[in-house]
Nucleic acid binder design. Structure first.
Lengths: 142, 142
DNA sequence: AATCAAGTTACCTAAGAAGTTACGAATGAA
DNA sequence: TTCATTCGTAACTTCTTAGGTAACTTGATT
């Protein structure tokens, strides 16, 4: 299954936005991402609604950070995307009559829930300023 | 994104197979899953190649367990599917020139790798006999 | 031989991220 | 005012992969 790359792209964009005070247009962001302006506006919409970035229209407009990177976590960015599904696998039938299938759902569902909780807890702990620090250190594999 | 339900379905099938010594046809399994025989044969192929189940053709044929549930873990079943992607999200560009994107990949990639490792370790610890135990106890949420 | 069932190939369907086109709305410069 | 710029949206297409379906082959039993 093709993977959702929106989280990865948003992090990339936000870190670039922190490099300058001037607003970045969707056009320029799209060039950075190898994408196009409409896709950029689409994935940025949630961040705007969440107050993490601000967009201005017209001449000299574009996107600007509305908060410092210290005040944004990976979880914030994930949530701004409307918390899309994290896992590529899931239950075949969420509410079966079959007792066997209910037991399978119980085990698998519990593991997924635990993995999700633990991953989101990590996301909540990682600030974008931490990632910026990795850029400065030239880290691409921590 | 639509989720992959093969793991969930295989567990369901295997536990039903353990309830009887008689071989189960793909047709009957498909009825249990609300699917069809070709899909069943497709998802069972890996288990057959891995020696976890055996298939016999012709009259009185069908699928039978080749090992007790005590000797099969969730990880075995997952691997029999060729280890499909676990996560619904991923890196936009796995090998970018951009230093910012490399840092993003580093952080996100490390979190995914850790989550994957931890989830598969759990899968390795859970035997199908443990799930059967949950059926007996009527557990659908551990 | 006839029947049953797995094995396999080929093609279709569904769902969602991503790409594209087109247009509207707001803003600032000439 | 007029016009270029830029975001905001809607509508449509494209791509990918699990899943569904049909048709056929292979092998075993009666």
């Amino acid at each position: 299954m093709r993977q959702d790359t929106r989280l990865s792209r948003l992090l990339h964009v936000l870190l670039h936005m922190a490099e300058t005070d001037a607003p970045l247009t969707s056009e320029r962001i799209a060039a950075m991402l190898g994408s196009n302006p409409v896709v950029v506006r689409r994935i940025m919409a949630g961040l705007r609604e969440g107050g993490f970035v601000a967009a201005e229209r017209g001449h000299g407009g574009g996107w600007r950070l509305a908060r410092p990177l210290e005040a944004m976590t990976l979880l914030d960015v994930y949530r701004s995307l409307d918390e899309p599904e994290l896992f590529a696998f899931g239950l075949s039938n969420p509410a079966p009559d079959c007792l066997v299938e209910r037991a399978v759902n119980g085990v698998l569902g519990a593991e997924v829930a635990a993995a999700r909780e633990s991953l989101l807890a990590r996301f909540a702990d990682i600030r974008l300023s931490d990632v910026r620090q990795d850029v400065a250190l030239g880290r691409d594999r921590p």
